[in-house]
Computed example of a mutant assay.
Amino acid sequence: MSLIYLRLKCLGLTIIFLVSHKGFSQEVDLPNPSPKQTIVQDFGLSSIELTYSRPGAKGRKMIGHVEPNGSVWRTGANAPTKIKFNSTVEILGNTVELGEYVLYTIPDTRTWTVIINKGLENWGSDGYDIKKDVCRVEVPIANSSDYVETFTCQFANVKPEGIDLQLSWENWQITIPITADVKSTLRQQLDVNLSSTKPHYWHAAQFYYEYEANYEKALEMINGAIRTGEAKGLKPYWYYHYKARILKEMGRNKEAMEAANISTNLAEEHGNRNNYLVLNKALIESLEKGG
């Protein structure tokens, strides 16, 4: 057997050993048993961000047992749940300024304590300090017939000035109502805009109709939007539909009917764009019934 052959054979065995050793020492990357989720929800004039880990019940009784009643809970698994408000909000009358916070909860059989806290460096509920609370409220717990295996947070009932943060797991759910003062900011913006050379009458009409129920002012603004749109060569069927809705609220049904018919004719020219034929038909039927 030649010396070259022996050297090649030894080299081959060394390579096999190194490859095999590398294979045996490779780490095993298991799925996270409580995967992280981040939710970003537009709300008001900004947004809310929520980051939490989602444990599964896995046949266990969690709240009231593994997570005992009357104790501060991280509201999830691993690091505590964090919530970021990108504008000032209110939670059941408590003002929470723009910023990021920890969302702690204290479960109980009838009501839960919801806590907004500044302890961003805490792990779990360790290090929780009541002195760092910025908001502490009580919310009722609701039972559900639908079983939720994985702890779930979601935003529901999203409206311009109100939103619900819902927490669900097992057979229970709690709802945390959050509100924002949108009207004050919008009113200030509109006051400035309407005094400019390019007023946004359409936005103003929506504000006075939907936020303040000031139908006289809303009618003035939508008429301004119609004039401006038609001067640009538009056929604003959506403006006329909105005008009809405003007039209906004012009890001026005959004029509302006229505006709805104009909207229908203009929408037909656009091939029933955005289903305004359907919307106008429903509105006209309501007006015919005196509704």
Rank of each mutant, 00 (worst) to 15 (best):
F151P: 06
K159Q: 14
A180T: 15
I163Y: 00
R252E: 05
R136T: 09
T95V: 09
T81F: 00
I83G: 02
I106H: 04
L8V: 13
I130D: 12
E27K: 13
H203D: 12
T51P: 10
G64W: 02
S2Q: 06
S46P: 08
Y276H: 04
K243N: 07
I63W: 00
Y101L: 00
L30P: 11
N86A: 06
I163D: 02
V28P: 11
N69L: 00
E285N: 15
A218L: 04
G291R: 14
N32E: 15
I15E: 02
E27W: 12
D181H: 10
K58R: 15
K232S: 11
K217Q: 15
L279K: 15
F207G: 07
Q26D: 14
K235M: 10
N157G: 01
H270S: 12
G251R: 07
I16V: 15
E249V: 06
K248R: 14
A77Q: 03
D181Y: 08
N280R: 13
G70M: 03
S263P: 08
A79T: 12
T152P: 06
D108C: 01
K183E: 11
N261F: 09
L120T: 04
L8R: 15
N280K: 08
K84N: 07
T150C: 00
A142I: 08
S47F: 11
W238H: 11
P35E: 00
G99T: 06
W112Y: 07
E212A: 10
A213P: 10
N157L: 02
A213W: 10
N78P: 12
T197M: 13
G162R: 05
G162H: 10
S20T: 14
G59K: 00
E269L: 09
L266K: 01
N86R: 10
S145T: 06
I63M: 01
T197W: 11
T81N: 01
E100W: 02
N193D: 15
S87P: 06
E210K: 13
L30N: 14
V139W: 01
A256W: 07
W202C: 07
V139N: 01
